[in-house]
Simulated assay, not measured.
Amino acid sequence: MNQEILIARVASVEARVEVMDWPWALENRERIEANWQRRKALKPRMFNGRVLAVRDMELTADKCCMIYSEMDYSDFVGWLDLPQRDTGVANGFAVGALQGSDGAFICGVMAEHTANAGRVYFAAGTPDRSDIRSDGTVDLATSLTRELEEETGLATGYAVSEDWIVVRRWPAVALVRNVVVPEPAEVIAERIRAEIARQDEPELSDVKIVRGPPDIDPKTMPQWLQTFFEWQFSQR
């Protein structure tokens, strides 16, 4: 997987799943298991399901093509946590860049019980088996809107851009679509906070409004999100 930082706008994203062996996971089995037990002790609600990770990516002037393969979540988390990662794998996920009518963005603050507690980013989730269509393609567009609704409660009342912004900053490949709500960011933020208060086990603890470069926080925001915001604000 190319590790060069890249950001590009494309008209479409196509993704499919292929069965692939993963020698790195076999070679690091004991370390992966120890890491999973450590993680489970800290976050007992973590579940070892099956997720999809990027194994190949091709970018042209108007299209991004992705190949995913399935793996256990424990293997995926081990790959993220352990040193000497396999550079042939990436965490590729669809992202809804939630934006108000005033141009400000609204990010979520991950709740304490989640694997990424305290981290700040848009609604997103690593694809899993539920995102695979019967023909083996991956429905990233639906993954995006599902995660948005699950985390923020927003199911309707927004416009999703047709094009995608690909942000590759290894180990992440964020596939971003702008999601615009015809209300100011502060109003949207209060709606989401009200939804968080209603949920028994919300994924978010709060939201953060990002209006410009001073709001970019390297301590809580992943590198791909910092790259996205820097690019977005440079366009203004």
Rank of each mutant, 00 (worst) to 15 (best):
I32T: 03
V17Q: 04
V160N: 07
G103L: 03
N91D: 15
R50Q: 11
C64E: 08
R16A: 09
D163M: 02
W79H: 04
L154V: 05
F47N: 11
L175P: 04
R211C: 10
I106S: 04
A117D: 12
D131C: 09
I209F: 05
W24F: 02
T114Q: 06
S130M: 01
Y158N: 06
D81C: 09
V173N: 11
D72N: 13
R169N: 14
E151D: 02
E70Y: 12
M66E: 11
R55L: 05
G118D: 03
Q99K: 10
Y73F: 03
F229P: 00
W79S: 02
G125C: 10
D86G: 02
E18R: 15
L80Q: 08
A117Y: 09
I7Y: 08
V187W: 03
V95C: 00
E230F: 03
R133T: 14
S101D: 01
M71L: 13
V179I: 11
D131E: 05
F233G: 08
F47E: 14
D163W: 00
R211S: 09
L148W: 02
V179K: 01
R236W: 12
P202W: 05
G108A: 01
R29L: 13
V207A: 07
V207N: 03
L80S: 06
S130G: 11
V13W: 05
S69G: 15
E147I: 03
L82F: 01
C64M: 12
E14D: 13
G103P: 05
A155R: 14
K40L: 12
P171D: 07
P218D: 04
I188T: 10
R9L: 06
V120M: 05
F233M: 05
E33Q: 08
V181K: 00
L80E: 11
S234Y: 07
A97P: 02
K208L: 12
F47R: 12
E203S: 13
P171W: 06
D135Q: 02
A90K: 05
F47C: 05
P171K: 02
G136A: 06
D75C: 12
V13G: 00
E201G: 08
N178C: 13
N178S: 12
S74N: 08
L204R: 08
A104F: 07
Q199S: 09
T114M: 10
F105N: 03
R169I: 05
Q199E: 10
E186A: 15
Q84R: 14
I216S: 00
A141H: 08
P218M: 01
I32P: 07
Q37C: 06
I196M: 02
L98Q: 02
Y121T: 12
F233L: 06
E150R: 10
L80D: 09
A90T: 02
V160Q: 13
A11C: 00
V176C: 15
M221P: 03
C65S: 15
S130N: 10
N178G: 12
W164T: 04
A90I: 07
D163Q: 09
G100L: 01
R31G: 04
V176E: 13
